[in-house]
């Protein structure tokens, strides 16, 4: 071939490479249409997966969330995601998966968890600003900033009182401060009481008898994990369940009257919420894996996120695995759509 023709051909071929850049979304745009679902927050993928309980199918990455997502909450046909890094709450319509304008909580807050007081107001814990925020969900504004304790993290609402767990974390090279739970009047935002609980309280769940169970992780050293039980009638600790290990989240089974405390990467510890008998401790873990997220559904089934395997496992109260679902990267918080 004539050398100049060869040169020309190569140049044309080279130019054609430039048009290879067009790419389409290979995942398509399928969205689930279901009224019964478990929602999964995939923390590394910063996305949401939907386990459609009607079709028993998983839809992965149906929506993307913000930076350092921490919690999913389902409320009134909407799904709320608390983004710690983005300092906001994202809101999704669970039928269309359209995202509304997020609720900005302000820089330097590091929101962790939220709980709805009613259809208008929700409370959000902020671990960096040591606050609990009363957020007007209709106006999408912060109505009141309430000072809680150091490292405000877990939250539960009982009646007109908001319970906020304060980890007491002040730095990796410093000992934890006394773990506390701040009790706030939900209507006027005043702090009613501060209750001393175990070391490093993280998460709060309400049992069938109305008592609040606080999982306290401990300090990974001399002070192992406990569950502090608060009676909302007196706002005092009525029981300390010395379960050991390093529990993170807590979920209560209202059907079988059990409390499940997840231990990251290792499974769950279980005790009775009626007589506080320990059924599974750190030496005898329930499930034996997962624990980055936990939820007990309205039928008493336990759903556990398995971070390492990118799975969510459905288990019954005896520990039998009923089904394993492959979800997105690094699943964490779970929420149930109640029909």
């Amino acid at each position: 071939m004539n050398q100049k023709v060869w040169v020309l051909c190569v140049a044309v071929l080279f130019t054609a490479f430039g048009f290879w850049g067009c790419e389409d979304d290979p995942t398509g745009s399928d969205t689930p249409e279901t009224s019964s679902a478990i929602y999964v927050l995939n923390s590394a993928a910063t996305s949401i997966s939907v386990i459609d309980l009607e079709a028993d199918t998983v839809y992965n990455n149906v929506a993307t969330v913000g930076t350092w997502p921490n919690q999913l909450v389902y409320h009134d046909e909407k799904l709320y995601c608390v983004n710690s890094g983005s300092n906001n709450i994202m809101i999704f319509d669970v039928d269309t998966w359209e995202a509304e304008t997020p609720i900005a909580l302000g820089d330097g807050k590091n929101p962790m968890n939220m709980a709805f007081y009613n259809d208008r107001y929700a409370f959000v814990t902020c671990s960096m600003s040591n606050q609990v925020l009363k957020v007007d969900m209709q106006e999408k504004t912060v109505a009141t900033e309430i000072t809680a304790g150091t490292g405000a993290t877990g939250i539960a609402i009982s009646g007109d009182k908001v319970y906020v767990s304060n980890t007491g974390y002040v730095g990796w090279d410093q000992p934890y401060e006394q773990g506390t739970v701040t009790v706030v009047n939900a209507t006027n935002g005043e702090v009613i009481k501060t209750i001393d609980v175990g070391t490093n309280p993280q998460s709060i769940a309400i049992a069938s008898d109305g008592k609040l169970h606080v999982s306290c992780t401990g300090d990974y050293g001399a002070n192992p994990g406990v569950a502090s039980v608060i009676d909302p009638a007196t706002d005092t600790v009525v029981e300390t369940v010395e379960i050991g290990g390093a529990p993170g989240m807590i979920a209560t089974d209202l059907v079988n009257e059990l409390a499940y405390l997840s231990v990251w990467g290792m499974g769950c510890m279980v005790y009775s919420t009626t007589d506080y008998t320990i059924l599974n401790d750190s030496e005898n873990m329930f499930l034996g894996k997962g624990g980055s997220g936990i939820l007990v559904d309205t039928e008493g089934y336990v759903w556990v996120s398995v971070w390492d395997d990118d799975q969510v496992v459905k288990v019954n109260s005896t520990g039998t695995v009923l089904k394993t679902y492959n979800v997105g990267d690094s699943p964490m918080s779970l929420a149930q759509r109640i029909y």
């Binding site: 995939n42 590394a44 910063t46 929506a63 993307t64 997105g328």
Partner: peptide, 14 residues
């Protein structure tokens, strides 16, 4: 420069 994924599971929306 063409599309870059930002997470290990290649979530298109990210």
């Amino acid at each position: 420069v063409s599309r870059r994924y930002t997470d290990a599971t290649n979530v298109w929306k990210n």
